[in-house]
Design a protein around this nucleic acid. Structure first.
Lengths: 202, 202
DNA sequence: AAATAAATCACTGAAAACCGTGAGGTGTTC
DNA sequence: GAACACCTCACGGTTTTCAGTGATTTATTT
């Protein structure tokens, strides 16, 4: 019997998946709705596999994977999320998960993925292969200053206004702006805002 | 035995909820992943209650409620969504649903809500009461065309590109753009994108 | 000590966005 | 039929963004 832990901010989703997997006597399922509050209830040592969302209000799923793997290196981890945007998937892959599933996959694939991963394989949605095996463009790693500028952009401030409020030259903010667009793979500020919202940077 | 239909774009969520409710012999659950494709498989006459998401790629949940109620007036309908923003909830309430649940509620409340609604009551998450009974502030009402333009803006398309893809003048798109910014109370496209994302217009 | 990343600034030039204002045609609603 | 919302288009002008390139300083890492 394999022990599975699921972390997601939607209780209903948790209850559903737990019910789904508990029909198999093969799995014992524990659920957590809020990692920050409830992680002490869980003994990671006896857990075999963790399913978790990327985008949760209290904690960032990608960083959480790193934390979990540090605490219990035997843990297998599968992302379970609805995000299929290249930038997010790529970022998530950097945390070296054992699997990545989209929430629009069905229960059969879910179980297949869990079994494969427990056997030591990796399992990724077919839809993601293209993204995952794509040439690794620059890693999205925004500096502190860049995030600061991004927040001000998201407040509908112009480059001039930002430069004044940060007491630097307009040229500097323009450079930050260009770097933000380049790093996030956006075409213009629109993509930048979408990235910022998707990645909880605001 | 009551027959329940669930419509959601995430197969995994569907499978989970079906499993959850099917443990009770009280309910018979049918699921649909894509209303546009699969609605013919369902005989609405024998369905007692529909649970559905608001935001689905192929169809708008709010309009769908109106359609369902027109086709089969005995149907009870509960929204099941993660949206708790005032604008969306208010809009959803206009469709006169019998219930509104957030996806972060648990299985107990889900079953309670279903039973209450089947008895002829209304059931709404406590968290929503404040919103529902709040004074109706002005509703931002974007026209069909404006929403269409907004979607293209959100795809990082320029005004020129949009005008070409819609076969109208650049000036027309510029006007739409100005009206969108004005109507949403934004200062520039940044505010527009934030509005669009917050209100699920994409 | 060398390499790297971060933050700063400059200059040119082109493209795009934004503002204001006016206006014609269509369709719906009161 | 008047009022209204919607969609369309035009024009002139200003502001902002975006692209490309190069450069200096500081701090950190190897």
């Amino acid at each position: 019997m394999k022990r599975i832990l699921i972390i997601d901010d939607h209780k209903m989703f948790l209850d559903g998946i737990q019910s789904l997997l508990s029909n198999d006597s093969e799995f014992h399922v524990q659920i957590i709705n809020n990692y920050v509050n409830d992680h002490k209830k869980i003994d990671l040592k006896i857990i075999d596999l963790v399913l978790l969302d990327i985008n949760m209000p209290d904690i960032n799923g990608i960083e959480l994977v790193r934390e979990l793997k540090k605490k219990a290196s035997h843990l297998k981890v599968i992302f379970l999320t609805s995000h299929n945007e290249a930038a997010i998937v790529k970022k998530a892959m950097k945390a070296n998960p054992d699997g990545y599933l989209l929430k629009n996959t069905d229960k059969i694939e879910l179980k297949t993925a869990i079994r494969k991963v427990l056997e030591g394989n990796k399992y990724f949605n077919k839809q993601l292969e293209e993204i995952i095996y794509a040439v690794n463009t620059d890693i999205i790693n925004l500096s502190k200053r860049e995030k600061e500028v991004l927040k001000l952009i998201a407040e509908e401030k112009t480059t001039l206004e930002i430069s004044k409020s940060l007491f630097v030259s307009v040229n500097t903010i323009e450079t930050h702006r260009k770097n933000l667009i380049r790093k996030t793979g956006s075409k213009n500020v629109v993509g930048l805002i979408k990235y910022a919202i998707n990645n909880n940077l605001l």
